[in-house]
């Protein structure tokens, strides 16, 4: 098993001069060193997340309260179950990948084809799940208001302690305010869509619903968000400036602004890795089906993309821990 890449003519194209430093072929070693540098990039992101979290340790959002959705279970509180399922799907696609590599060592073409196909499907399911997670995160669930300081106030039922959505208590007030479009405004000014309720509607609704109180970002000694009394709530609500629904890069209804930024950036960067991994897997899959590696008598290309795929899984294990568990 000398050459990494040999053509039909049995001509050596490039195997690093035939010398194998550290006992690894050229392609494999370069894949490994790419992985090392990419691992450092991801660790930079995750450590930056840790830095911001330590900085705002008392006010950081609680992941269990943010990621509570499960497909087809509407209104059911299912913290983390879906992410756990996604983790399983990715680990399982890693298993089918390593089985493909194993079958490749034994030059069993059909087995490699099937395992690669399963790997690609697993990857697609994972990327789809991540897109769904993003959709829920962006659209939000309860809504909140932002204060002058940029702090978020969420609403809870004073008697049960359950979260209350803006729609449950805000009072509809007739008004003419509509979203400003660039074709109507002066000098092409426009704005993003207005929230479903104005601040005035929320304040009026708050007055008429005696059991609504607000919850601040501050965590108490039990690790729960602090709930204010009715009088304090009214006072705080007076300082509200903006209605926040869902999340974007500027503000989010879950709390600290950095939380959403890191969520988009880290899971987005990882999701992009999964996506490119799926694309590379598909290219290799086509090559396997065409019999390229059968003629080479070496399935080392499968092994190399396998390394990348496992790395993506490895990164997710860490993202899962630091974003959802810790």
């Amino acid at each position: 098993m000398e050459a990494t890449v040999t053509t039909d003519s049995k001509e050596k194209v490039w195997s690093g001069g035939g010398v194998k430093p550290l006992g690894a072929s050229y392609g494999k070693m370069m894949m490994w060193f790419f992985i090392v540098s990419d691992a450092l990039t991801f660790s930079g992101f995750l450590v930056a997340y840790g830095f911001s979290r330590y900085k705002f340790i008392e006010t950081w959002p609680i992941a269990d309260e943010v990621f509570t959705h499960f497909p087809f279970l509407h209104g059911v509180d299912a913290p983390m179950y879906y992410v756990a399922l996604m983790t399983f799907i990715l680990i399982f696609s890693s298993v089918t990948m390593v089985l493909a590599v194993d079958a490749g060592h034994q030059l069993k073409k059909n087995k490699v084809i099937w395992y690669m196909l399963l790997t690609i499907i697993g990857g697609l399911i994972f990327v789809g799940s991540q897109a769904w997670e993003w959709k829920n995160f962006i659209s939000g669930e309860y809504g909140a208001v932002e204060l002058k300081s940029g702090r978020i106030l969420q609403f809870v039922d004073a008697s049960t302690g359950e979260r209350v959505a803006l729609a449950d208590f805000a009072k509809e007030i007739e008004e003419d305010r509509t979203t400003q479009q660039s074709n109507q405004g002066v000098w092409y000014m426009s704005e993003t869509s207005l929230p479903s309720y104005s601040l005035e509607e929320i304040k009026t609704g708050f007055e008429s619903h005696e059991n609504i109180v607000v919850r601040t970002e501050m965590l108490n000694e039990h690790g729960e968000k602090t709930v204010l009394s009715r009088a304090e709530s009214a006072e705080r609500l007076g300082q509200a400036t903006t209605v926040v629904e869902g999340a974007n890069l500027v503000r989010n209804e879950y709390g600290s602004r950095l939380f959403a930024d890191f969520f988009f950036f880290i899971t987005g960067f990882h999701g992009f890795h999964v996506f490119s991994g799926v694309v590379i897997n598909i290219i290799i899959f086509i090559n396997i089906v065409l019999g390229t590696y059968e003629r080479r008598k070496s399935y080392e290309m499968v092994e190399k993309v396998g390394l990348y795929w496992h790395f993506v899984d490895l990164v997710w294990v860490f993202v899962f821990t630091f974003f959802y568990l810790v």
């Binding site: 691992a39 660790s43 840790g50 830095f51 008392e58």
Partner: peptide, 17 residues
């Protein structure tokens, strides 16, 4: 490198807090 970076930045984050 990773524990080194984590150590520096987490200590710094804690200090700013």
């Amino acid at each position: 490198l990773i524990p080194y970076l984590a150590f520096i930045l987490l200590v710094e984050g804690n200090y700013i807090h």
